[in-house]
Nucleic acid binder design. Structure first.
Lengths: 159, 159
DNA sequence: ATGAATCAAGATATCTGTGTCTGATGATTA
DNA sequence: TAATCATCAGACACAGATATCTTGATTCAT
């Protein structure tokens, strides 16, 4: 079959947009700008941003000069927060076969699958948007130069 | 949006079927029997088994008394082998935005997503089908009693 | 106030994963 | 050989994720 990504395409888009917003806190960034930098189809990104806004991770402001901005600081938003806003990773709470006769316990197979899901969730819980700026400063989230130059051009910020 | 499982439905089905086959090596188990025990729609399971057969994890035998059996011993088949036969977990090899200007390196975001994918793969690589029988013997893969009794009834094996 | 910019919301289109069905091929039994 | 069982192979149907488009509502600048 086809390769399957760990996260859905929509979630990937959301993470890109959030990374971008984290890069310039307190600035209002329009959907069009985000779409260009993140290379996401604009009309679709608009939908994704609406979801993020509904989850109260970001706030949208209409009108001229409008756009989106983070609701909390980048260090207080984990990757898992973003993932949860779009496609939560589901834990296996009860036997998927709907068999009753093992009191609450998962079978070895599903116990291990659930453990893997938990590990993933814990990993993403432990990474904040801010963490992604804390390394080699020559490489920015969403691929350094592209983003850095585009953004600087657009907003006239000096580095 | 909707909850999204770590593995696709099809992969889940494949893991169930493989667990079942691992439980009775050297027996030929028909699609109908597997479907009943694993609670998977029979016609669809038939497709999944064909995929597993094409990947040479199992071999099908036609005709009266036919069915499927493992090609290797359960201890030599990892969960990842099964997953790879259906929907491989894809690593992020290059920038999904298709930006060229960072020589081979992933940006912090995708580097972390890829690390998570690698960790998952390593986890599933380290678990064999046989491992799932090595614990509390009262709980079998695919939910103990159900499978145990059904199987014993069907094949008349004593415990 | 008027017009332009921008988000909000809903309808619609497309593609892929999931699931069903039918006929063909091969194996067993009698 | 004939009949039956079960996999094999392909076509078809459906639903949900992805993507597009249109219209309305809000904000800003003039």
């Amino acid at each position: 079959m086809k390769e399957s990504a760990l996260l859905s395409q929509t979630t990937e888009y959301a993470l890109r947009a959030m990374s971008c917003l984290a890069y310039m806190p307190d600035e209002l960034v329009s959907t069009a700008q985000l779409a260009e930098v993140t290379h996401v189809p604009m009309n679709y990104l608009a939908k994704v941003l609406q979801l993020l806004a509904k989850s109260e991770l970001i706030t949208g402001r209409r009108g001229v000069g409008g756009g989106y901005r983070l609701n909390r600081s980048a260090s207080e938003i984990s990757l898992m927060d973003v993932i949860n806003a779009i496609d939560p990773i589901d834990r296996i709470k009860s036997c998927p076969l709907k068999l009753e006769n093992h009191s609450g316990k998962l079978c070895p197979l599903h116990a291990r699958l659930d453990a893997a899901a938990k590990a993933l969730i814990d990993t993403f819980d432990g990474i904040s948007l801010a963490d992604m700026f804390a390394e080699d400063p020559s490489i920015r989230p969403l691929c350094s130069a592209e983003m850095t130059t585009k953004v600087n051009l657009t907003f006239g910020q000096s580095d």
